[in-house]
C-alpha cells in the first residue's frame, strides 16, 4: 500500500477519506445548499474548478496523486464508490425531509456529492491526459469521457439557475404571476391567457389527451397563440411552457389550467454533453469493442 505505482486499493482509501471528510462537513455546515450555487457563484466556482484541474494536470510530474488520478486504478475505485453510494440512494426512499437522517436526502449529503465529484474529476483528468498527444483514434475515448463530464458539470452547476414555476390560469383572466418551487410569488415576465382547456378520453374513459389553448403576452407587447399539451411544450421568450395540471374533480370542465414554466440557461451545455455521449456510445460499439478472437476450435 502507498508504494508506487498506486493501484485500486489506494483509490478506495482516498475515497474512504473523502467519505469521512464529507461526514465532517455534513456535521459542521449541514447539508449541501445547492441554492447558493446560483449565478454568478456557479460561474466563479466552475472557473476555479477548471483552474484547479489545469493546475493538477500541470503538476502531475511533481505530485504523484495527480499522475495516478489519470489512470485505470483511480477510475475503477472512484466508479465503484460512486456506484456504492448511489445504490444506497436507490434502496432508501428519497424525500424532501424526514426518512433516514442524511441518507433520505442523498442529493444534499456531502459524501454523495464528494464521491461523484471525485469520479468526475478523475474522468476530467483522464480526458486531459488523452488530449496531450492527440490522435484521431482517441476521439471515441474523448467523446465518452468529456461528454459525461460536460453533461454532469453543466447539470450540477446550472441546477440553481434553473427556474421552475407553476402558473394557475383561469378563463378570462390573464395571469402574470407564478409560484416558485418554494411557493414564492414570482413574475416571469410573460402573461398567459387561457382560451380553452380540453381533455379527450379513450372508450374506457381513461384520459387520452390534455391540452390548453393559450395566448402568451410577452413583456414587449407581443402575442403568441399556441397549444400546450403533455409532451408538447410551447417555447416563448426563453420559457418553455408545459401542461402541468387542472381541476381533477371537474375534469374537462376545469375552470383553470396549471402550467409549468421552465427556464434553464445551462441546457445547451447539458445537451452538448449528451450529444457527445450519444456519439461516444456509437463509437463504443463500432470502434472500442475488443477485436474478436479468431478461433482454432469450436466447442
Amino acid at each position: 500500500m502507498w508504494t508506487k505505482p498506486w493501484k485500486t486499493s489506494e483509490g478506495f482509501l482516498i475515497a474512504g477519506g473523502l467519505f469521512v471528510f464529507g461526514i465532517a462537513l455534513q456535521i459542521a455546515v449541514g447539508p449541501v445548499r445547492w441554492s447558493l450555487l446560483a449565478a454568478p457563484a456557479n460561474y466563479i466556482a466552475l472557473l476555479l474548478l477548471l483552474c484547479a484541474i489545469a493546475l493538477m494536470y500541470i503538476l502531475r510530474k511533481k505530485v504523484y496523486l495527480f499522475e495516478w488520478m489519470m489512470h485505470g486504478g483511480a477510475a475503477v475505485s472512484s466508479i465503484a464508490c460512486a456506484l456504492g453510494i448511489t445504490m444506497v440512494m436507490g434502496l432508501l426512499p428519497q424525500m424532501r425531509e424526514g426518512g433516514v437522517p442524511w441518507l433520505s436526502q442523498m442529493l444534499s449529503f456531502w459524501p454523495f456529492v464528494l464521491l461523484w465529484m471525485w469520479m468526475m474529476l478523475i474522468a476530467a483528468l483522464a480526458t486531459l491526459n488523452h488530449m496531450r498527444h492527440f490522435k484521431w483514434s482517441q476521439i471515441p475515448f474523448l467523446l465518452n469521457h468529456l461528454g459525461v463530464v460536460v453533461a454532469v458539470a453543466a447539470a450540477t452547476f446550472g441546477n440553481a439557475d434553473m427556474q421552475k414555476l407553476k402558473m394557475r390560469v383561469y378563463y378570462d383572466s390573464p395571469q402574470w404571476i407564478a409560484l416558485s418551487e418554494d411557493d414564492k410569488a414570482v413574475e416571469p415576465g410573460i402573461g398567459i391567457e387561457l382560451n380553452d382547456f380540453t381533455i379527450d378520453y379513450y372508450e374506457d374513459m381513461s384520459p387520452k389527451r390534455f391540452a390548453s389553448e393559450i395566448t402568451v403576452n410577452t413583456a414587449d407587447g407581443q402575442k403568441v397563440i399556441g397549444t400546450v399539451e403533455v409532451n408538447n411544450p410551447l417555447k416563448v421568450s426563453g420559457w418553455k411552457i408545459y401542461q402541468y395540471g387542472y381541476d381533477k374533480g371537474l375534469g374537462s370542465e376545469s375552470p383553470y389550467s396549471i402550467f409549468m414554466l421552465v427556464k434553464d440557461p445551462w441546457l445547451p451545455a447539458v445537451y452538448t454533453g449528451i450529444f457527445m455521449m450519444l456519439a461516444g456510445a456509437l463509437c463504443l460499439m463500432l470502434f472500442m469493442a475488443p477485436k474478436p478472437i479468431k478461433e482454432e476450435e469450436e466447442f
Binding site: A155, N231, A281, L284, M285, A289
Partner: peptide, 26 residues
Amino acid sequence: YVGLAFLTIGMLFGALWAKAAWGHYW
C-alpha cells in the same frame, strides 16, 4: 461494449424525452 452502448443511448433518449414531457432531463 455493445450492450452498454445501447444502454447509454436508451438512457439519454430517456433524458431528452423527460425534458419534453416533465420539463427536466433528470
